[in-house]
Design a protein around this nucleic acid. Structure first.
Lengths: 214, 214, 214, 214
DNA sequence: GATGAATGAGGCTTCATTCAT
DNA sequence: CATGAATGAAGCCTCATTCAT
């Protein structure tokens, strides 16, 4: 989606632009982020940005894609060693903890995730989610399939429903602990990691009851 | 939250402002909504808005509160006649259908709900959700309690978790059928009501398995 | 076409804006004129201009209308005393001289006329000519009718053709003496008034031969 | 006027640049045409254009020259067979029809002619008309001389005036049928060819009365 | 209590031209 | 001779808020 120019760019320059973009879009969301600010922070002429991306939406979508790739890679590695075959739902809890930790430790990716999920502009949201969703599903789908293959998820379970619920709840778990006002019940934003872990345990349990074998 | 002036206003004038505000905030979300436009549509001086509300956020929060009240009232009435005592989860499906229908038939309340849930500005989002959440909970909490009282929800079920899941999924069910790109799995935005009803049935089933008595 | 605000404006402020607008549009034509410059020269906030006019085109059209009104008023007065009844074509020559003199002495109206007639943007040109043409015709039509009424223009002359030729040639006579490169044959831009007068005499003669009684 | 490099260019490359330039300048006029767009359409590096032409004006002037050459060649051939010696003014009508047809069938040359005649930038207009006018006159002058030689134009007619009028009216007849708002009286842009032909007949008659022998 | 004119910073985007490779 | 990345000024327009009337 970026223009060919983008790929031919000196890596150091490209990195400056990415860094500035991540910071700005993360801090203010798509609509209120300023390309002026990004250009200034990246020490790049305003017009240059438009040599690389057709418009603001395209730029945001690219950053979203990059971030989602990072998240996907990290999570793929983080959950690979877990004992899914023998303890699917325990591994799920652990995966949610890893998820929590990752976003706690990577505030920029977290902020971008928030920006992506809270975008109100139709066009921007569609572009950005189209870029991001495949990355989520690339991890989720095989994982759920694995659970079914190992006999821990019921053969007749509705996998679509499971995936849909994850797609709704994962961004929430990523963001809510750090964005005030998103979760008025658990108050995820006001608890420490240990307290949050209890929530993840409960959620895994809910999931087991709904989709797991008896 | 509105200034005292607001309440002393001629009702017809107040209604014009509310109507214009609902339309504008619904159409563009908080950040991109224009007070200029609202004043013009309401046939009211720009400055007047600031006689009634301290700022844009306060105005938005008030409209959100009003809308949530409408939704709460409607849903309370709609679900009262359902046979919760004898068929809690069937009633839940039916309630979700009513929920779907209400937002299908009331595009302005739906658009406001979307605006509220997708707002990226921290301050605005907190203000607005603080105004809205109590209305959701006012319906949800007694209902869940009722399910437990009638023995259809397990005595040891985690009611907080149940409420939290609802608070996450209800706005989604309200918005997703009409906002493109929110639900890439079920594709709620591309299905007719009958197809969506199947989703609600499945969700009730998930909920029964997680929280219901055996 | 201007917004109501425009008419309620303090006259002195309005005049400053008009003066700045005439100067800038006259100097650079519509497309290359800068609203920034106009606002600065008029000592008015950039945004204010948009309180008075919907956009750049509307602003330009208003200035064109004003200028055409000035020209119409001036010419109506200037040609009223001429002996049209007894010497139509002599009066025509004299009227063309007056026309020449007016634009020689009023460089801003001349520049605006040039800007109007040379505008390449379709939308702007249509808007602006719609505003201007009626003023030309308000003088031309009765005049030509007069010539016919007094028996100096043939009864069977094609008045439409006459009007059309005037509408084409009048702006040319207004502009060409002061804009280089428009008239490579007579070289109107390189001659003094007396030499130009010879051209007007010739043109009147052409006109007499085409449309006058024998 | 182009740099020497231009002539040494591979013809196919040169043609791509010409085609892209004609399309862009014709579509938007000189000021608003974009060299970026031209380079992209011609599949040529932006910088290359500046190897062939000193600047935008020079490029435009060259394209104008080319187009005028095409028009001149076409018209010279088209009017050669007409019976100027025996029916000068009938031939004139027919020539105007050919003129109309040519520009109806060659939208790019027409658009360029419009761009040339409506250019508001002094420098650009002078450059471009200097390039174009000789082509017009190369056809007009001998033709008018011919009319005089054959005794159909009066010996004492003012040929300069005749040429000047043509130079004003020919571009108008070329453009007005296809550019809205240029001709509010005849409404050339709203008529079909047959109706326009009536205008050309009338114009020839006007010309005959002014300059023809009795 | 109502008005609405004024503000001016800031929004995204486009452009002709240069110059190092 | 060709390339195309970089520039940065300038473009039009929008906005929430203030304040004198």
């Amino acid at each position: 989606m970026p223009k060919p120019t983008w790929d031919r760019l000196h890596p150091e320059r490209r990195d400056r632009i990415i860094a500035a973009g991540r910071a700005e879009f993360g801090a203010h969301g798509f609509s209120r982020a300023s390309l002026n600010t990004i250009a200034r922070e990246a020490k790049v002429a305003k017009g240059s940005l438009f040599q690389y991306f057709g418009d603001k939406v395209e730029f945001f979508a690219h950053l979203a894609d990059l971030s989602a790739t990072i998240v996907e890679d990290h999570m793929a590695k983080a959950i690979a060693p877990l004992p899914w075959d023998t303890d699917f739902f325990g591994s799920l809890t652990e995966a949610l903890c890893q998820w929590d930790i990752f976003f706690a430790e990577n505030p920029e990716d977290r902020a971008l995730t928030a920006a992506i999920n809270l975008e109100g502009d139709d066009q921007a949201r569609m572009a950005v989610r189209q870029a991001v969703n495949p990355h989520y599903l690339a991890v989720l789908i095989p994982l759920i399939g694995h659970g079914q293959g190992s006999g821990q998820i019921r053969a007749d379970a509705d996998l679509e429903m499971a995936a849909a619920m994850f797609l709704l709840i994962l961004p929430h778990f990523a963001i809510a602990p750090h964005v005030p006002g998103l979760d008025p019940i658990f108050g995820l934003d006001q608890r420490d990691f240990e307290a949050r872990k209890q929530v993840y345990i409960k959620f895994s349990e809910v999931f087991r009851l709904s989709f797991g074998t008896v």
